[in-house]
């Protein structure tokens, strides 16, 4: 059974256009061995593989609604601490070596520049490593095994793009308030509201605000 590994920064050259296009379906694990090390504890990927495959099977290629299901599946199957998940090497291993076809299934190839970051860049930005983004968005939105907020946040392209590139996304109640109010808002509205909200939170302490206050702030930012 496969075990989680860490792909080292020296493997950057493995992110090629051929991999992004699927001309190279996957690398032989043995061939990239010099660029991988074992994850610090044993973490079998059997459950992860099954769950990810199931999501792929139930969604057409390029289907945006796959994001919520993928985020939940990845987060449920990879029980990682935030410290462990902060290592970009594990996400790179999953995307570049272990399951590159998942990345290609989610995003149609349009440009190598963007596709490249979806294999390599760590974080939660819209163009970050696919597995990293799914896991972290789920981590920031899950509430006691309830992933409904995750699904709603990732169900809106504009919301997930603009919300999870901001620092305020790290405060769960603020994220929840944003999702509740902006999940169905038009893209331009979402972008402007989050920009104003960001400025507002430069003067206010979100941690000291309750649900009502936060939602009021988001509404005020929306104008």
């Amino acid at each position: 059974m496969s075990r989680l590994k860490v792909l080292l920064p020296s493997a950057r050259h493995l992110v090629t256009e051929e991999l992004a296009r699927g001309v190279v379906e996957r690398y032989d694990e043995a061939a990239v061995g010099e660029h991988t090390v074992d994850f610090e504890r044993r973490l079998d990927l059997g459950g992860f593989d099954d769950a990810v495959s199931a999501v792929m099977a139930s969604h057409d290629a390029g289907d945006l609604s796959m994001d919520g299901a993928m985020a939940e599946a990845v987060h449920r199957q990879l029980r990682l601490s935030r410290r462990e998940a902060a290592d970009p090497g594990i996400w790179r291993y999953l995307a570049i070596v272990h399951r590159p076809e998942v990345v290609r299934h989610r995003w149609e190839y349009r440009s190598f520049a963007t596709m490249r970051t979806r294999f390599w860049r760590h974080g939660t930005r819209f163009d970050a490593n696919a597995f990293s983004r799914w896991w972290w968005v789920a981590e920031l939105t899950v509430m006691a095994e309830d992933y409904s907020l995750t699904h709603r946040a990732l169900g809106s392209s504009a919301l997930s793009t603009h919300l999870f590139s901001r620092q305020l996304a790290w405060h769960h109640p603020t994220v929840a308030a944003c999702v509740r109010i902006l999940a169905d808002a038009p893209g331009a509205d979402v972008e402007r509201t989050l920009r104003v909200l960001g400025k507002m939170l430069g003067l206010r302490v979100a941690e000291a605000m309750g649900r009502e206050e936060l939602e009021g702030l988001v509404r005020a930012a929306r104008g």
């Binding site: 901001r166 620092q167 305020l168 920009r195 400025k199 939170l201 430069g202």
Partner: peptide
């Protein structure tokens, strides 16, 4: 300049 919650200039 106005800055956002992360101290970035908006």
């Amino acid at each position: 300049a106005e800055v956002d919650e992360a101290g970035r200039r908006t």
